[in-house]
C-alpha cells in the first residue's frame, strides 16, 4: 500500500474529508467575506467609485467623530445593561428548573421557556411598543389600579425600552447555559457543605455559584456579543436617543453609500465587544482558580 492510499484510509483523512464541505462553505461564506470587510475598511468610497489605496481615514473618523463615539459608548452601555438584566432574570429561573422541578418535567420546562423565542422576531419587538406605549398595557394596568394618574411617558422611546425588549429576546439563551451548568453540579457537594455547617445562603455563595459560573460566563458571551448588532429594536422602541451603532452601520451601507466607513464601524464594534468579553472570561478564570 502506498503512503497516500494508507493516509486516505486513515481516521485522520476520513474525518477531514467528511468535514470538508461544511468547512469550505464556512471559509467561503464567513472567513472570506470577513477578510473582504477588513480590506474594505481601509479603502474609501466616493458614491459608487471605490478607491483601493490603503488609508486609515475610516478608522480615524470612526474613533474620533463625536457622533460615532456617542453611539459606540451608548451601544456598549446598552449591551452591558441587557446582559446584566438578562443574567439576573435568567439565573433564578435556571435554578428553579434545575433544583425544584422534578427530573421528568425538566424537558417540558425548557421547551416552555424557549417557545416565546419562536414568535416572529419583528412582531415581538413591535408588541413591546404596544405594551410600553402611551395607551399601552403597562400604562393601562397602572391607571386601572389607580397607581398613577397620568400615563407614564418615560417607558417607551428611550434606552430603557431598548434594554427591556432586548433582555426579553435574549433571556432563553441565557437560561439554557446556566441550566446546563447547574445540572452538572454534583448534588453531594451541596450536602457536604450543609453537613459542614453552611447555611443555605453561604452554601449558595460558596458552592453553587462558583460551580455555576461557567454557565454564567457562557450566557454573558452569548448575549453580550450579538446584542451590539441589533438595529431593529433600537429603531422600533428606542426613539431618537435610543439609537445604537448598528443603526449607523446600516445607514452607511444602505442610504449613505459609504460602505468603507460602515465596515470600519462594524469592525470597531466587533473588536470592542470581543475584547470586553475576553477580559470578562479571563477575569472569571482567574477568580475561579483563586477559589480552588
Amino acid at each position: 500500500m502506498s503512503g497516500f492510499t494508507k493516509w486516505r484510509r486513515s481516521e485522520e483523512a476520513s474525518g477531514w474529508l467528511l468535514v470538508s464541505p461544511t468547512l469550505v462553505y464556512s471559509i467561503l461564506m464567513l472567513a472570506a467575506p470577513l477578510a473582504m470587510v477588513v480590506a474594505l475598511s481601509f479603502w474609501t468610497q466616493d458614491y459608487l467609485q471605490l478607491d483601493k489605496t490603503f488609508t486609515l481615514k475610516n478608522y480615524i473618523e470612526a474613533w474620533s467623530e463625536p457622533i460615532y463615539q456617542t453611539l459606540m459608548g451608548r451601544s456598549l452601555k446598552i449591551s452591558a445593561f441587557v446582559t446584566a438584566l438578562t443574567i439576573l432574570l435568567a439565573f433564578p429561573v435556571a435554578y428553579y428548573v434545575s433544583f425544584y422541578v422534578p427530573q421528568k418535567r425538566k424537558p417540558l420546562w425548557i421547551f416552555l421557556i424557549t417557545i416565546p423565542f419562536w414568535t416572529s422576531y419583528l412582531m415581538r419587538i413591535f408588541l413591546w411598543k404596544v405594551i410600553l406605549g402611551y395607551n399601552g398595557v403597562v400604562n393601562g394596568s397602572l391607571l386601572g389600579l389607580g397607581l398613577i394618574e397620568q400615563p407614564l411617558s418615560f417607558i417607551l422611546y428611550n434606552q430603557n425600552a431598548v434594554v427591556v425588549t432586548l433582555a426579553h429576546a435574549w433571556v432563553p439563551f441565557a437560561i439554557l447555559p446556566i441550566f446546563v451548568a447547574l445540572e452538572k453540579i454534583d448534588r453531594s457537594l451541596l450536602e457536604a457543605a450543609e453537613d459542614l455547617g453552611d447555611g443555605p445562603l453561604r452554601r449558595f455563595i460558596r458552592v453553587t455559584l462558583p460551580l455555576a459560573m461557567p454557565g454564567v460566563v457562557a450566557a454573558t458571551v452569548i448575549v453580550f456579543i450579538p446584542t451590539i448588532g441589533d438595529y431593529v429594536t433600537p429603531r422600533l422602541v428606542g426613539g431618537p436617543n435610543g439609537l445604537m451603532i448598528s443603526n449607523m452601520i446600516e445607514l452607511q451601507f444602505k442610504k449613505a453609500n459609504n460602505a468603507p466607513l460602515g465596515a470600519a464601524l462594524a469592525l470597531s464594534a466587533m473588536f470592542l465587544v470581543s475584547v470586553i468579553s475576553l477580559i470578562f472570561v479571563w477575569l472569571n478564570r482567574k477568580y475561579l482558580v483563586g477559589q480552588k
Binding site: 464567513l30 467575506p33 470577513l34 473582504m36 470587510v37 458571551v221 452569548i222 456579543i225 450579538p226 446584542t227 451590539i228 448588532g229 441589533d230 438595529y231 448598528s246 452601520i249 446600516e250 451601507f253 460602515g262 465596515a263 462594524a266 466587533m270
Partner: peptide, 10 residues
C-alpha cells in the same frame, strides 16, 4: 455568537 449584522454586511 456573531452579530447577524456582521454576517449580512460581509
Amino acid at each position: 455568537v456573531l452579530p447577524e449584522i456582521i454576517v449580512g454586511v460581509s
